[in-house]
Amino acid sequence: MLIGYARTSTLEQMAGLEAQTEALKAVGCEKVWIEQTSSVAKRQELETAIDYCREGDVFVVTKLDRLARSVRHLGELVERLDSKAVGLRILDLGLDTTNATGKLMLNVLGSVAQFEREMMLERQREGIAKAKAEGRYKGRKPTAQAKADDVLGLLRSGHTKRSVAGKLGISERSVYRVAKLAG
């Protein structure tokens, strides 16, 4: 059985999520788990999808960066899949770990992807440092604080912190922070 997993980092990336889902279904995935969360956050749907896999299944993602955040994480996921006798297929790379060549290529490409991400982060840090030195860097606009009145109003009307976060499109942690600052 082909089992698919699609992920985007933010809610604004709906088109990307739909494109991944369509691609997974087009190759024959019978079950597809969908998730909208950062790669560093807890990914419950990924865990559920891997737990669902059985011997002989193939776990399918559209791109390597939708699955793993580092070579180490990729290795851990591949080890878990291997222990269940489940293959891994990455569509955009034409990679399939059900053979030795696919496993080798996965390790090489995983290393290249991690290197690319580290280089991007390094360039980003350099750009931020330069902008700060020139007095042009202001940082990210605090979106949750701008919605503090709405947060407090919903909390007073009996909504849970989780539902407030969902309604306002902010993190649950931000709701707690606003509530704590308000006393």
Score class of each variant (00 low, 15 high):
S70T: 11
E55C: 10
L93C: 09
T62K: 11
L11Q: 10
I3Q: 06
S163C: 01
T101P: 00
A6M: 11
N99Q: 09
E45N: 09
G94N: 11
V71I: 05
A131D: 06
L88Y: 12
V112D: 05
K132Q: 13
L11F: 02
G75S: 08
V32R: 13
K63Q: 09
Q13E: 14
E134H: 07
G16L: 12
L154D: 11
D57E: 08
Q145S: 04
I34E: 11
L109G: 04
V78P: 00
A179T: 06
A26V: 00
S9G: 13
T160N: 05
Q114G: 08
K130R: 13
E118G: 07
R123N: 02
G75L: 01
T37G: 04
S39H: 05
K84V: 07
E118C: 03
S83T: 10
D82N: 13
R54C: 10
T10A: 06
V60C: 08
G166R: 14
R7I: 08
V58D: 00
R123K: 14
E126C: 01
R173A: 06
R89F: 01
G166V: 00
P142T: 00
D51I: 03
A49W: 10
Q145I: 03
E22Q: 14
M1P: 09
A144P: 08
S9Y: 03
A6I: 12
T160K: 05
Q20Y: 05
D82V: 02
V112N: 04
R54T: 06
S171M: 03
E134K: 10
T37W: 00
K147N: 01
T98P: 00
K25H: 14
Y52M: 06
G28V: 10
A182T: 07
T21K: 12
A85R: 14
R80C: 04
S83K: 12
E116C: 11
L152A: 09
G158Q: 08
R156H: 08
G135H: 11
T98F: 01
I128W: 09
L154R: 15
K138P: 00
A148K: 15
Y5I: 07
T97E: 03
G127N: 13
D82Y: 02
T160Q: 05
S38V: 03
W33Y: 15
S174F: 01
A144H: 09
E134P: 00
R66Q: 04
A85H: 11
T21R: 14
T48W: 00
A85I: 00
K161Y: 08
I50R: 05
R125F: 02
R123C: 04
A100R: 07
E55T: 10
R66E: 03
G183F: 12
E45A: 15
V40K: 13
L155E: 04
I170N: 03
K130H: 05
I3P: 08
L77D: 02
L91H: 07
M1H: 13
Q124C: 06
A41F: 06
G4F: 09
I90F: 03
Y137K: 09
L91V: 08
E35D: 11
W33A: 15
R7K: 09
L95H: 13
L154T: 07
I3V: 15
T98K: 13
S157V: 09
S83D: 12
V164T: 14
L77E: 02
G166Q: 12
K147S: 01
P142M: 03
R162K: 12
W33P: 04
